[in-house]
């Protein structure tokens, strides 16, 4: 059976289309993500945020590392960059500094951003680099088979912890907060409306913005822990999430099956890296400082 809309019960006006499609490389769809995986849901929210924010799509670049979420760069019909493992943030930093008018969004997973690329994350947040980091956190290394990641909560069974994880996990929102990020929020894939609004907000925010999205990986995380499928996980998110805007991030750790605190935790003003650089050069060099010519020669 070829791809077609088989729906007969609804009258579908001619010319209507799925609002996500203009943002996707349709020749690559269907995607590789498993049934019940949450990554596609986050992509829907991101495209709605781009639509609402009326961003100039020619000036939006997506940078991903490696992993299941890293595939987003390959599916997004935007300027996109699928980089080496853990290095999405350094690539994004270079992109932003060479062409400050670009809106640079890093879209990657927890393993890529916080294990292999953890060092890059803390320094980009410390510098308040004007990039936005969207992290789909499925609490495991999914693409490589479900090993323990720095985000895997205690007592979870993983490929490398058959008797349960015992090492403490990172609380990503606390880490981002402590490093000085300008904007920090967490949602789950259940909170599609709030997530889309948060993404729209972070796109408009200057400085280092971070959104963590807790997302199901039924294939390698939930299944091994007998937590059911994607839908069961979504129902758990619905039942266990508490919206607490402005909550102290230190109180927002994720556990195996406990409460999930979601909301916007941090929204503060700090000069970003580029502003600090310019201020310092003006102070030290005075008239001898010529602001660099930036931008791409072709646009």
């Amino acid at each position: 059976m070829s791809e077609q809309l088989l729906e007969v019960e609804c009258e579908i006006p001619e010319g209507s289309f799925n609002p996500v499609e203009p943002f996707l490389r349709m020749d690559r769809i269907p995607h590789i993500w498993c049934a019940g995986c949450g990554i596609g849901t986050t992509v829907n929210c991101f495209t709605r945020a781009l639509l609402e924010s009326k961003a100039n799509l020619d000036k939006v670049a997506i940078v991903s590392g490696i992993g299941c979420t890293g595939r987003v760069a390959g599916y997004a019909r935007l300027d996109s960059f699928h980089t080496t493992h853990g290095r999405a943030i350094p690539f994004a930093t270079g992109l932003k500094l060479a062409n400050p008018e670009l809106q640079v969004v890093v879209y990657s997973g927890d393993g890529d951003l916080f294990a292999i690329g953890g060092n890059h994350f803390i320094h980009a947040a410390r510098r308040n680099m004007d990039i936005k980091v969207i992290c789909v956190n499925n609490l495991t290394y999914a693409m490589t088979g479900g090993q323990t990641a720095p985000t895997t909560p205690s007592h979870v069974i993983s490929a490398t912890a058959p008797y349960g994880v015992f090492e403490p996990a990172f609380n990503l929102v606390q880490l981002a907060d402590a490093c000085g990020a300008s904007y920090v929020a967490r949602w789950t894939t259940f909170h599609v409306k709030q997530l889309a609004r948060s993404m729209e907000e972070v796109l408009k925010k200057k400085g280092f913005g971070f959104i963590e999205i807790v997302s199901p990986c039924p294939t390698l995380y939930q299944r091994r822990n007998k937590m059911g499928d994607g839908l069961d996980t979504m129902k758990y998110y619905k039942q266990a999430s508490k919206i607490r805007h402005g909550a102290p991030t230190g109180e927002c750790s994720l556990t195996k099956s406990g409460e999930i605190v979601v909301g916007k935790f941090i929204d503060r003003e700090r000069p970003d890296y580029y502003e600090l650089l310019q201020a310092q050069m003006h102070e030290s060099l005075g008239d001898r400082y010529a602001e660099p010519e930036v931008g791409c020669s072709e646009c």
């Binding site: 799925n18 609002p19 769809i29 993500w33 019940g36 949450g38 849901t41 829907n44 929210c45 599609v192």
Partner: peptide, 11 residues
């Protein structure tokens, strides 16, 4: 439904 669908199959 369109926002939830991880496979872009409904709107």
């Amino acid at each position: 439904c369109g926002m939830y669908c991880p496979d872009f199959a409904i709107y």
